[in-house]
Simulated assay, not measured.
Amino acid sequence: MTGLQDIADRGLVLLGCGKMGSAMLAGWLDRGVPPEAVHVIEPAPSDWLRGSGVGIGGDLPERPAVLLVAVKPQMMEEALPGAAGFGGGGTLVISVAAGTPLARFEAAFGPGTPVVRAMPNTPAAVGRGITAIVGNAAAGAGHLDLAEALLKAVGQVVRLEGEGQMDAVTAVSGSGPAYVFHLIETLAAAGEAEGLSPELAMALARATVGGAGQLAEDAAEDPGQLRRNVTSPNGTTQAALEVLMDAESGFPALLRRAVHAAAERSRELGRG
């Protein structure tokens, strides 16, 4: 992993170790980051964290290679002042906190501090996440490479052209898993309405969405072609798609409204 030796020598501080922090930490340890190089600040450590071999609380390295901020946005005001001493340029600050702009971290850690803002999503818990990253002016190519290497421990990583894209990313991939989970819920409920048992309807919905997602990611064809491949003229799929693809009430209009609402809320959170 790029930057592994620097982390092994200087350490990594993880501020917050809930579900996302734990997923990342498990990925780092699997990829060879020495447990003794990781120092976690977490007021309520899980049993898994206690048994992971990493340092919890106690003395922290003075100038770690990375400080990764994984606390919830509403806890930021309480958490950041205690970590402000890591600012000044010697430590790369990476944030996975939703709705918290780069400027907030620059104000907390001071000028010259390299900061990378990242937006992962919950499939990171099974190593299938996707994370978008963007750096501030002080974050050079090496800092972005290190952030990407760390975040690849839980899935794919993409780089943004600018921080202005982060609200749209939040609305598509950050919040997107919830849209898919709701699709599973509603698809199963529709199956029940057609006479299936709840257990069978849910099993069919889960496997269908999971399998179709894997096919969409692995196939050479784009999703539009995959859709056409399974749609026979005047068949059952076409009958359903005529409802789902309706310009006024179908998926296109509904998802545009949903994603826009999420993006707008992300902008509001960023303004504080």
Rank of each mutant, 00 (worst) to 15 (best):
P111N: 11
L92N: 08
V69K: 00
L68P: 09
G162Q: 03
R117H: 03
A108R: 01
Q165L: 02
A137F: 04
G87M: 02
A153H: 01
E62H: 11
T122E: 09
A139I: 08
A149Q: 07
E78P: 08
P111K: 06
A70D: 05
A141H: 12
D59M: 13
V134F: 00
A138E: 00
V126M: 15
G85R: 09
V154S: 14
V169S: 10
A137R: 15
L144H: 13
G85D: 11
A132E: 09
V169L: 08
P114N: 04
G112H: 06
A79I: 12
E62G: 00
A132S: 01
G162S: 03
P81D: 02
G164R: 14
V96Q: 01
P73L: 02
V126Q: 15
P123E: 08
L102K: 11
E163V: 00
M76G: 02
E62Q: 15
T131K: 07
G127M: 02
L102E: 00
L102Q: 12
S95A: 12
P123F: 02
V154C: 02
P114Q: 06
V126R: 15
G82I: 14
V96E: 10
A103W: 10
S95N: 05
Q165S: 08
E62S: 02
P101M: 10
E77S: 14
E161Q: 10
A79C: 09
L80G: 11
E161C: 00
V93G: 06
G127R: 09
M166G: 01
